[in-house]
Design a protein around this nucleic acid. Sequence first.
DNA 1: ATTACTATGTCATATCATAGTCATATTTCA
DNA 2: TGAAATATGACTATGATATGACATAGTAAT
Lengths: 236, 236
Amino acid sequence: MTSINVLIADDEPNQLELVRFNLEQADFSVITAEDGEQAVILAQELTPDIILLDWMMPNMSGIDVCRKLRSKSSTREIPIIMLSARGEEGDRILGLDVGADDYISKPFSPVELIARIKAVLRRTRPSLANAVIEYGNLRLYPAQKLVERDGRQIHLGPKEFQILSLLIERPGQVFSRAQLLDNVWGHGVYIEDRTVDVHIGRLRKALQESLDGKNLPDLIRTVRNSGYALHLPSVR
Amino acid sequence: MTSINVLIADDEPNQLELVRFNLEQADFSVITAEDGEQAVILAQELTPDIILLDWMMPNMSGIDVCRKLRSKSSTREIPIIMLSARGEEGDRILGLDVGADDYISKPFSPVELIARIKAVLRRTRPSLANAVIEYGNLRLYPAQKLVERDGRQIHLGPKEFQILSLLIERPGQVFSRAQLLDNVWGHGVYIEDRTVDVHIGRLRKALQESLDGKNLPDLIRTVRNSGYALHLPSVR
DNA sequence: ATTACTATGTCATATCATAGTCATATTTCA
DNA sequence: TGAAATATGACTATGATATGACATAGTAAT
């Protein structure tokens, strides 16, 4: 569950299996789709961490899939890399224009592919790419599952860690309880909304603890009727 | 409740369902009307965020509906996109002339439709598109449910935030108490007119607070017998 | 297996923020 | 000036959020 989920859509089974093999070697979890429609459905159903789209597919081309994914809020944030047989500059531009994050022309080496995937993830979802994320005096090490505040290490349970990972990727943004449940627990999990409050409470407490008895300022903002957000304590 | 409400009026059930399907896929909330009269009634009743009008309908044509909506204050501000089978330039001009915000000729792709809707909304209701809105020294971040004045963060209750969101979209424009009640509380809510005054008072107070004891200039103009408007203090 | 921990989800309860109303003060303008 | 409109402070009910306690399940070490 800790590995990165990749959805690949390509109508050519050989190509599909080749990529799958290479990515699985590199410790990615791979899901495959044989055409565009399936890709859209799977993307919504499973919210992978990144999507690789073949440019030309029956049913719905990579471009159409890309547009469609970008138009739905549930899939809008998922980074997309377009794969194409043609290496024309026009396509590249069209692809990026339609909302893709990167564009690779075939043939490509497994090494290149993996490098590109990591590059895109580093840019869009730093915590997945194991890049250290900083925000204010907070520092989060995704690979080590470790958090520091003012250089002091903080112990968090797995759930609290995931919540913080999500919040810190988009500081300031308000996440609803539903969003948190979807992203941290996974969709389709039946858990009380209120449980989120409890975990937020635990996260808060952990982040506030300091050597002296006094608490550090709270880094989580409660937004009534909406949810929670990470924020820098502002000047009062 | 956060999604965008679209009212579609078309006499062809197939067309209606097609559009409904596509829009719902893209996370819009859809209401449908089968003729012009119904469209006008629903528009008033539900104040959707945007209206799609078929050009030719029994009972009342799209043009007539458009005129009618533009003539009533409760619906005047709702953006309208006309849909038409004919692609003649004359119609386009007539449509825009009558007060439509955009004009799409059939057949159109779902992608195009959605793009147009978003474009119109971005133009007319920036906060729905999640863009940061600035006005004078005020800055409103819809996604973060946050307001700043002179860079200083301001705490607002949900109601006050919504009121300000509405006002800031059309700075200077006077909103009646009825309009505010409709937009912020929702239609059909039975609340005293005077309650609006109280919330405006709270909003005023929150916006005026500053570090030193002194108050910042008032940003809300009271228009006797009419309502309230956001304004820059310099403009008298 | 047993034990000792840790993490998790739920609940009941405590706390708190906000919404709405009213009474009263103040302003506006005819 | 007087009537009407608006501003404001106080109060209460409500609903949202915070929190402590608990049962359970998993994990690690013995």
